[in-house]
Design a binder for these strands. Structure first.
Lengths: 155, 155
DNA sequence: AGGCTATAGTTCTAAAATAGAACTGTCAAA
DNA sequence: TTTGACAGTTCTATTTTAGAACTATAGCCT
């Protein structure tokens, strides 16, 4: 039995991430965040998520410090949800998923969204590289070592 | 109401990806795959997933072409599960999640695993860059356009 | 031959999560 | 004073997941 409510205390970094963003709705909510959606009604109508679940997920994302709940109106008190730096740092995950979907789950209509890099002005794909040598990363070229935070089993 | 069983036919690339890998166990199973785990009992004992769910998830990953079910013994017939190219291409997603966990969900013990890039011999972090200019990608430097496969709403 | 072990599942019931719809409360504008 | 927008909460029904037990094949040991 895996206890999902304490999964963020696991020794494995992937488990900890999965504890926070490892469900369908959370990932779709985050996509909307990166598309500048910020308000409850906007999330709800664009995703067709039930209000109950949306409320739960937003609370959870706030609890984990991924979104901030910021008032945008006094009287009546209303709030919007804005990505923190911790949330913005999820961008590579979202982009990697979008790119995999484009590559492997596409259909004849072509991709729904194109991404322009403002810095260079071109349409791009995200590429994952090695921080040390800058080469494109492939699973088979990576060797895994135990780090300091590991007990014994696979972490 | 979101129909998860046909989510892979959605217009949004993220939805399509989420349809396949957007649940906790699937992501953890894939991590094990990248750590060279291949057999039912090995997945089960290292993840403590129920046998029922493991069976379901493996079937689904095979159905989507992410794993291949390869016989490794006749009499009795036994199979192991091996990443296809489509599955190997999920590596950036898994690595991005591991790296985010290391960065934002770590504890005082340090990271559980370290990654060595065989090509350059160094311990590295994964970095997401622009395919066109090679610069590190940040959400705020990306502008999103409609592509050919988009209907009208946000996709 | 009879029993033990390993592997890869399937089946069953109970508990938990999600879907779907309706309801609440606050305030502004008509 | 009524309507509408917004941001939720509450309720029941359905679906999914957890946990445990069971099945099936075959090798090995005595």
């Amino acid at each position: 039995m895996m206890k999902w409510d304490t999964l963020d205390e696991e020794q494995c970094s992937l488990s900890r991430t999965v504890a926070v963003v490892g469900d369908r709705w959370t990932l779709l909510i985050l996509r909307e965040c990166f598309l500048r959606v910020r308000r409850f009604e906007a999330f709800q109508s664009s995703l067709q998520i039930t209000r109950h679940l949306l409320s739960e997920r937003l609370k959870k994302l706030v609890r984990f410090g991924i979104l901030r709940r910021v008032p945008y109106s006094e009287a009546p008190k209303r709030y919007e949800y804005i990505l923190t730096q911790k949330g913005l740092d999820l961008y590579p995950i979202i982009m990697a998923m979008v790119h995999w979907g484009d590559t492997h789950m596409g259909d004849e209509r072509g991709r729904p969204l194109l991404h322009e890099h403002k810095t260079c002005g071109k349409l791009f794909d995200p590429v994952m590289v090695c921080s040390e040598c800058g080469e494109v990363l492939h699973a088979k070229q990576v060797h895994v070592h135990s780090g300091p935070g590991r007990k014994e089993a696979v972490g």
